[in-house]
Structure formats: C-alpha cells, structure tokens
C-alpha cells in the first residue's frame, strides 16, 4: 500500500509522474491499483513556516524574516524556470497561478 500526495497546481507533482511511472513498472505495480492511493495535498513547508507572534507583539526579526523570504522567493522563481525547462514549457506557463481546489 502506498499513498501519494499531489498538488495539481505545483510543477514538482507533474515532474514526479514520469519517474514514478518508471518506478512502478519496475515494481511492478499498477498506478491505478487500489493499492495506490492518490490524495490531494495543498500544504508545504512554506505554508507552515512563519511567525508565531501574538497580535500586537513586536517582532524583533521582522527585517530578517522579510529579507529571507525575498531570497527564498527569488530562488523559487529560478527553480521554477529549471522545472519548466525539464517539462518543456515556458516559464510564464509555470508561473501561472491555478486554484488547485477545482
């Protein structure tokens, strides 16, 4: 039994499909088998990281936090370009914001 969590709006889930298929062919396991459970997952480390300050509390790390977030966003943009290169799509396509709940 294997459970796979994916997000249709994120490129890593898409990139995972081809090697996963190869892996299951070697196993061998059918991706559509009841032994393989597919579930949506919208969370990521980025969505759990952050401040735990209570409202009104001063944040001594506000500048550091903002600068680190900026660095992280720049790196994510570059990584997005790399993933688009592997998938053979344009970076603008990869940057499209899609609501994964639909």
């Amino acid at each position: 039994m294997i459970t796979l969590y994916i997000n249709f709006s994120e490129l890593p889930s898409w990139l995972m499909l081809a090697p996963l298929k190869d892996l299951f062919e070697k196993a061998p396991t059918d991706l559509a088998s009841p032994e393989v459970i597919w579930k949506p997952m919208l969370g990521s480390l980025g969505s759990v990281a952050g401040s735990n300050l209570k409202p009104g509390e001063d944040d001594p790390l506000v500048i550091y936090r903002a600068r680190r977030a900026d660095a992280r966003h720049r790196a994510a943009k570059r990584e997005n370009e790399r993933m688009c290169e592997i998938l053979g799509i344009k970076p603008e396509q990869g940057e499209r914001k899609i609501n994964p709940l639909y």
């Binding site: 990281a49 735990n52 790390l61 936090r65 680190r68």
Partner: peptide, 24 residues
C-alpha cells in the same frame, strides 16, 4: 527560530519550552 519556531528538550527528550505550532 524565525521560520520554524523555537523549542527546548531535556535529557529525557521531554519538551520543556516551545513556541512551535503543531504544524511546525
């Protein structure tokens, strides 16, 4: 601590201080 909260454990592994959310 700025992005994953802070915590301390004693030698037995018990958490003695924590500012982390369950998700963190």
């Amino acid at each position: 601590g700025s992005y994953l909260g802070t915590a301390k454990k004693d030698d037995s592994g018990q958490v003695t201080e924590s500012s982390r959310s369950p998700r963190q």
